[in-house]
Design a protein around this nucleic acid. Structure first.
Length: 391
DNA sequence: ATGTCC
């Protein structure tokens, strides 16, 4: 069990077994980040990979200041899982693939009352990014229809209201331009410096950050609702979990601030850890607070992987895959799923080959005593973008 | 990651 929790330095842990491949640069970034002033403890997840200066797939616990740059631009990014009323057995992949022509446009007037109501319920006052509400965005964001492939804990599935016969919908998106604008405002004024609790901009950042988190949640809800409408189905949200945010937390007796950058909370109930679009995703139950795992929970900063983790950098994937795979080859995956992605670079950047095998990431967290697997989800159709096919 | 970029 202890073998999947590595001690990198006195205050840096890595939740990964020795044979899980993690890029050296990511470890360097993890250690460097642990040396920031006020940093108390850092934890890398098994999907750790390099970012711009700071690693992705990690949690950072500070005592008396926050670092907006560690949260990054996509404040509130996360995963929501919806069960649709559609039946897996009725799916026709090519028919399904044609139903998403309009899901990237700003939501039309038929949505304005639900948008207004939900914004008011969630205390979202900004209107500046209304045009982006209900849109997935780029990068690793997606909407994916999935089938429950294997069940390991039927009771947990029942608790979540999930039924194997129904098609599931997993949405990965965040706060789009809103989060970006909040980060840019901070960087413009403070560079990458943190904000102490008594700094005048502390409360201002936190208020904007918290609103961006709520905006991102609403964004995923609207994405799910418009995809449900596109396939003429109903649906229920089973879970919605943020993996990019900073929040107050008491860890091992210390009050502080827990930054998560591509790190899924293990203290918010069931979560989905998605594999690449050509791999299974895992619905898991975080293990909370028995004696055997208490120390590992502290070392992991109550966090889990947020996915399989990139193996290859964005931008280098086309070069690595272009010889072997034509564009058409990537519209289907080894698990028989369909990919809708009209943007060529994105098609290669997010190819299954660019990611690690999700199973190793999952088994590292099982071995660390952090999770139990509830079910394995098989991709059916991954929507990225209708895109610009000319590029 | 980005109402993305020269």
């Amino acid at each position: 069990m202890g073998k999947s929790v590595q001690k990198i330095t006195e205050n840096v842990s890595l939740i990964a077994s020795a044979d899980t491949w993690i890029e050296g640069l990511a470890i360097q970034q993890l250690i460097k980040t642990s040396e920031l002033s006020g940093m108390h403890r850092v934890a890398g997840m098994p999907d750790l990979h390099p970012g711009r200066g700071y690693p992705i797939g990690a949690a950072f616990f500070t005592l008396n200041k926050i670092y907006p740059a560690l949260v990054g631009n996509d404040i509130g990014c996360g995963m929501s899982l919806w069960q649709t009323s559609a039946k897996v057995s009725k799916v026709n992949l090519e028919k399904l693939a044609k139903k998403f022509e309009h899901v990237e446009l700003p939501l039309d007037e038929s949505w304005s009352s639900i948008i207004e109501n939900r914004k008011s319920e969630k205390c979202i006052t900004t209107d500046n990014y209304d045009r982006a509400l209900g849109t997935i965005g780029g990068g690793n964001h997606f909407a994916e229809f999935q089938a429950i492939n294997e069940v390991y804990d039927q009771k947990a599935l029942d608790e979540l209201g999930l039924n194997k016969k129904h098609l599931q919908l997993l949405v990965h998106s965040g706060s789009r331009g809103l989060g970006q604008s909040i980060l840019v405002e901070h960087i413009t004024k403070h560079n990458h410096d943190g904000l102490g609790f008594n700094d005048e901009d502390f409360q201002d950042y936190m208020a904007k950050h918290d609103e961006a988190v709520r905006w991102a949640e609403l964004n995923r809800e609207l994405i799910a609702r418009r995809f449900l409408e596109a396939i003429r189905a109903n649906g229920n949200c089973a879970l919605d979990i943020n993996h990019n945010l900073v929040s107050a937390k008491n860890i091992d007796g210390s009050d502080g601030w827990l930054h998560r950058k591509g790190a899924t909370p293990s203290d918010k109930g069931y979560v989905v850890i998605p594999g690449s679009r050509g791999d299974y995703s895992y619905l898991v139950k975080p293990i909370s607070g028995n004696e055997a795992t208490a120390e590992n929970l502290n070392k992991s900063l109550f966090s889990l992987a947020h996915g399989a983790g990139r193996k290859w950098k964005r931008g280098e994937c086309h070069g690595r895959l272009g010889h072997k795979y034509k564009r058409e080859d990537l519209y289907r995956t080894a698990l028989g799923s369909r990919v809708v992605c009209g943007n060529k670079e994105l098609l290669y950047d997010e190819a299954p080959q660019a990611y690690k095998k999700c199973e190793t990431v999952i088994s590292d967290m099982v071995d660390a005593g952090l999770i139990e697997v509830v079910a394995k989800l098989r991709p059916v159709l991954t929507f990225k973008t209708n895109g610009d096919c000319s590029s």
